[in-house]
Structure formats: structure tokens, C-alpha cells
Design a protein around this nucleic acid. Structure first.
Lengths: 177, 177
DNA sequence: CGGGGCATGTAACCTGTTACATGATTAG
DNA sequence: CTAATCATGTAACAGGTTACATGCCCCG
């Protein structure tokens, strides 16, 4: 489980409230981690219980912003966690299951769906490339920036992969025999 | 949720018992769908309840193989499901969270982990390429075979991506400033 | 001052994971 | 005949998803 540590990371960069973290999430590691606001609130409460973050006491009560900041114990926990080892995440892609079903049942009309997804990937790729051009144009960036760039690069490579794969898949699925 | 339909697909190809399906899973769509035997048994029971599959009545009881075959209603359901639309699956990759934490905290020693994973991806890639050479050497394959090949190709492309990305990441992480 | 949107929160549910248990089969 | 292994199954749990509820704030 990485959500608590993803939140700690965000809070190292800058303190913030649940809703702020949610939108920062969308802008930073959305390619490789997602969380709904419910997950975030639940997890922030747990982090506070563990003594890893602290909510600024000034503001409390439902409906009011509640800003959190990371505590030393949280920093320490994050440093520990970064060096945990785990195998590459496995991808669960229903489309691949559908393809195998198509192969077993005969042509089913999956090409429409793949064309739709091709468009999605093309668009995402354009967005990511734009971010890259804007934030990572300088080749002589700091180490910190280059590491952040690595994450974006993985996102770009993934979208490129799916664009390429989808085009090829459409060629194969054209066959109606 | 795709597990029930992944099982239906496997049962269209050939009837089988839970354990057989589990090992067939490993050999066919393991790149894009995984399931433990517990999930499979639970799901097979549900599929039977829904009237989509039938277990051959001869064999029953704990510890005895229980073969299932797909029913017409199951085939129909599978055909319906193949054409459902959903957005590309999102990848949850803790390593990317770790990288962002590394960027925020300063060098933490992630390069070891990435080198380890590079080796894993290289090995998987070799295995997939071997399967490809053995099962999909013929360019003039049937449509069915070509569609199955598409799934394997996606797996190969993904592993290649991570090999390439890991090598680049190692270069960046060498920097210790 | 009333309504809509925003921030937070509660609750139920589902999938997937892990640990463990039991009956059958097979090897030595 | 016993031990190891295989096939099936039970149970508890954790993370993620969805639906919905509540309180604050600001705009008209």
C-alpha cells in the first residue's frame, strides 16, 4: 500500500489540506497513482493517529479546511519506506481479456473500442508532452528535477506504447475472416 | 471486474477444473490478468449460481477435481461483455511514488532497487520473446492466432519499455549531488 | 437570505490478498 | 502405510469504489 506514503511525500513538499492534496495528486503522479478524496481523508486521519502528520488545530469541524503538516516521525517513516523492495506492479487490463474472448468467439467488433482508446492515448500523450516542454525543457536541471522528469518520461513512454500498439491492433482486427 | 469473463473465455476454449484454469491463466493472459486459486474457486461458484457454467455432476466433494463447462447463457453473456467500453486501466506503481519521495528527500539509494528490477524485466522479456518465436513465428497465421499475438506483443512492448526506462533511470540516479 | 458549490466525513460494498484447513491422490 | 502433494474450500482482512450526508462559505 502506497497511499499513505504518497501523501507523506506530498506533505514533505508542502503542507496542505485534503482537497488540496487531491488536486496536487492529479497534477503530479496521477499517471502512476490515483486516489479519491474519500481515500485521502480516511488516510490522513490514520496518518495523524500514527503520529506522522499533524493537523493545524486552528481550523476544525466539518466543512472547514483542515491543513496537515508532516512531523519528523513521518519524514523518518517515509525515508524507511522508500527503500522497501517490491516486484514491478502487474497491470490488469480488461481489454486484453476481451481480446482473448474475441479470439475465442470470433470477430466481435472490438475495433471500435480500440479506435476510441487510441484517441484517448493520443490526447494524453499530447498533454504530457506539453508538460514536458514547459517544465523540463532545460537539460541541465537539478538532480531533483531530473528524478521528477523520470516519472513523467515513464508516463510518456507508456502512452506512446499504447498509441503504437493500438494502431497495430486495428490493422489486425480489420480482418473479418 | 473481469475475472468472471476471463474464466468464461478460458472455458469457451476448453472445459476445465479450477486448478487447471489457474495454470492455464498463468500461461495465457498472465501479463494482463492474474488470479489466485481462491479467487478462481469463489468465482466459479458464482458463475454456476448465475447459470453461466455447469460443473459436471459426476465428481463432487472436497479434494476431488470438479470440471466446469460453459453454458449457452455464459457464451451469450461473454459476447455481451466483450463490447462493453471502459477507459484504459490505470497503473499503480509504488516505485514512482518512491521516486517522487526520493526527489523530495534527496538521494536515498533507489538505484539498487531499479537495477534489481531491470534484471527482472530483462528476464521476462527473454521469456516472452521465446514464446513468440515458438508460437507465433508464422506471419500468415489465422485471425484468431494474430489476435492472441496482439496480447503477447503488448506484454513484450511493456517489458521493453521498462528495460529502457530503467537503464535511463540508473543514469540519472548516479548523480549524488 | 437562499441556493449552489466546496470541503469534509460516514457507510456499505466489492475485489483481491493472506492464512489456514480438509479431503483425495500419488510416490516411496 | 505414511508422507508429500494436489485440489478444493473457509475465514478474516485490507484497499479501493460508490453513494450519500453534513456543515461551511460565497454569490446573487
Amino acid at each position: 500500500m502506497s497511499l499513505p506514503h504518497a501523501l507523506l511525500t506530498a506533505l514533505v513538499e508542502r503542507p496542505g489540506s485534503g482537497s488540496e492534496l487531491a488536486s496536487r495528486f492529479d497534477r503530479s503522479i496521477a499517471f502512476f497513482w490515483q486516489a479519491t478524496h474519500q481515500q485521502i481523508y480516511r488516510e490522513l486521519a490514520r496518518l495523524e493517529e500514527s503520529g506522522w502528520v499533524q493537523s493545524l488545530p486552528a481550523e476544525q469541524g466539518r466543512g472547514r479546511k483542515r491543513a496537515y503538516k508532516i512531523l519528523p516521525a513521518g519524514r523518518k517513516e517515509l525515508k524507511r519506506w522508500v527503500l522497501e523492495i517490491d516486484d514491478p506492479a502487474s497491470l490488469r487490463e480488461p481489454l486484453m481479456v476481451r481480446l482473448r474472448a474475441d479470439a475465442a468467439l470470433g470477430p466481435t467488433g472490438l475495433d471500435k473500442e480500440i479506435a476510441r482508446r487510441l484517441a484517448i492515448h493520443v490526447e494524453k500523450l499530447a498533454v504530457y508532452r506539453e508538460i514536458e516542454a514547459r517544465d523540463f525543457a532545460d537539460v541541465s536541471d537539478s538532480r531533483q528535477k531530473q528524478v521528477q522528469h523520470l516519472v513523467l518520461q515513464a508516463g510518456i513512454m507508456l502512452e506512446s506504447l499504447w498509441v503504437e500498439w493500438s494502431k497495430n491492433a486495428l490493422k489486425v482486427l480489420e480482418r473479418r475472416d
